[in-house]
Design a protein around this nucleic acid. Structure first.
Lengths: 216, 216, 216, 216
DNA sequence: CATGAATGAGTGTTCATTCAT
DNA sequence: AATGAATGAACACTCATTCAT
């Protein structure tokens, strides 16, 4: 038998609106519970894969009762979505920090810093990154939305360097290219790097590649 | 019979070797059945998402009996794996064709052609591509393996153009960059393009970006 | 999901240790549920035979949910084993009571009393006894074990009468013979008595036969 | 999960009448097929127990097609019944032979010979005997019938020795006792003998016990 | 708010049986 | 007669979710 975690996840339409959680956890204690639950999911994810995750195992691993899980999440799918959300939020935070740190620096600096950020967000836990990326259900819509939202962030970061970028091309197109190359190469450098290539070299090459394409 | 705790942990041993299918379909009829099953999965995937797919619905949609499904696939997971496999195979075929078509042509030509191939493989059914990419379980290992295998293909394709590429960098590093940019931008152009950007322009920019980074 | 070839071969390891049940029912309520389940099995057994028993029908007949059944039993086989266990336990209890009641009495008394016990344990529900005996799966190992354990009980019961038993033969051999004759004749008197023979006479003859063989 | 071989065995009422087989195999070839099937069942029984036996595995093990199995047996249950039937037939044959061999001999001789026969029939394959006895479904009715039929055989065998038997007791009662003691002790000596007791001694004691009870 | 026993609809999978060849 | 691919009803078992305490 072979069941998939998402098997019993009910009606997806339920997730169009925003109340991913039953109660917004305003209390510190409540926030901790939510974190514990998400961390439990990660632990289980690594231990045995999505298909082995049950709401009861999540509760047990998190050290809370199953009832409490349902206090904060309307159903199982919401837990996965919250996990993606948290991951996206972390990546977003890292990138914004890198951008603000690079203010006033060269374009080379900015790009290197952003790629570092991207790698940092994934390299700290490559296994988890890969899992979130390709096994945990519920990524689809939010991911697209997030990517597009990032373009705007990148556009602003690129603005000061506009003069150094290839002539006629519009900035938002640059941002589109930058965003996707960052994501792709950030992932690839960590997860799909051929054995013969060191992390350091891969990173350097990636930065050079991105810069070249931005300036083209 | 007697199954149990081990239900929770997919018996991975089953997937080590190659027999993803119970019987290799040598007969034309059998091959058709397998195709019908995979097509049914796609139909269901689009109709209601992974979580709504049951083995019985697959059988029904494919117009075969559930027993026949299990004649060709040891379990549900194997069906999804076969679907990924088929998709990968198709992408592989397209890329190889594009490479052989571009033999003797310029590097620009090659890259444009490869990106076209990538887009073609996904644009024909963007929804399916997105689904396969982020919802269908069982992708993780094979995807990594496939990516790495592709680097070699790209390395060979780049070889004749070595002289036009940036000086000191080794070919296999170029192939790594090329492969990931192709995949990332191929996907992005189809699936995550901002509304303000046309497919045509996005493609052009992507080709320029890739070429620039190759030559850097 | 995920079960497989091993389905064909009951995972016997599960039955090596004692946890035939998932949770040892310490609560009164829980004990009642277990009893209800076993009684339901008996009811179904009589109504339509082993082959008609499904776990769902057991739950329904017992008036509990199928989920609750699996709270107390790891699988279907365990239910049957528990039923045998309970039967064995009951027989054991009856025999021990008979032995303690016959303390100080003659050997004739003891044997008559034991046979009575054996018959009582089966005659109260001959149909069930026959069913348990030859149709309900999972009996094999436990039955052997139980038989051998009984020999010891009988040996102790015979000890005070050692002087009246045939000379040279060791007591444990007597116990072996006694145990098996009791069981065989207890069963036979109830289940396989020829039509021409009354229960009363059959019993008397059985007692005489056993006594004679003990004294031989 | 835990399925029992008898799970899908259909309607028991089907077996009231006699056509256990579709066609009485008059051809030598056909008889061989039937034997091959029954032997296959035994092989599978020992290899993995009743619950692992499927009609398809029987066919495969027997080296015939599943279609052929259904040529000779109306359904799965009939196969088990035929197996019991064959076993009973063999025991019957052995006992009759022993009786005719002991004609003109003493009662001691007869009883010893009969017990030998019983043991012989089971000791040659104790595992199978135990399996047939307590795991293979379909024994119930036929066994009772067989036991009762045997009493008559034993009654005839005892007749010449009537004068040496305990006074007033009718012969058919003696036969009842003899039959059951033979069966019980025959089984017990082979299958449930305590470790401390050798086969030889167990047999001797059993003969003595039976003789004593007959003469009582 | 927290708990966790109880629920039962739903699922993957098997396997006895048929029937076209 | 023999074959074995195909069938699909039936089953064991799980697990998301509820709700009485």
């Amino acid at each position: 038998m072979l069941t998939f975690a998402h098997r019993l996840i009910p009606d997806m339409r339920k997730y169009r609106a925003d109340p991913f959680r039953r109660r917004r956890p305003t209390q510190r204690r409540a926030q901790e519970t939510v974190e514990a639950i998400l961390d439990a999911v990660i632990r289980l994810l690594k231990r045995a894969g999505v298909s082995a995750i049950t709401t009861n195992s999540i509760a047990e691993t998190a050290g809370v009762s199953i009832g409490s899980v349902y206090q904060y999440f309307p159903d199982k799918r919401a837990i996965f979505i919250a996990l993606h959300e948290r991951h996206i939020h972390q990546v977003d935070k890292v990138l914004r920090r890198k951008i603000s740190e690079s203010e006033g620096e060269t374009l080379d600096c900015l790009v290197a810093s952003l790629l570092d950020g991207m790698i940092e967000a994934h390299a700290s836990d490559p296994e988890l990154a890969a899992l979130l990326d390709s096994e945990v259900p519920g990524r689809i819509d939010r991911a697209r939305e997030f990517s597009i939202r990032l373009y705007e962030t990148f556009r602003k970061a690129l603005a000061p360097h506009a003069m150094y970028l290839g002539g006629a091309v519009k900035l938002h197109v640059r941002a589109f290219v930058l965003g996707n190359m960052l994501e792709a190469l950030g992932h690839a450098v960590v997860l799909r790097r051929p054995h013969a290539l060191s992390l350091r070299s891969a990173k350097m090459e990636a930065v050079k590649a991105i810069l070249a394409s931005l300036r083209s």
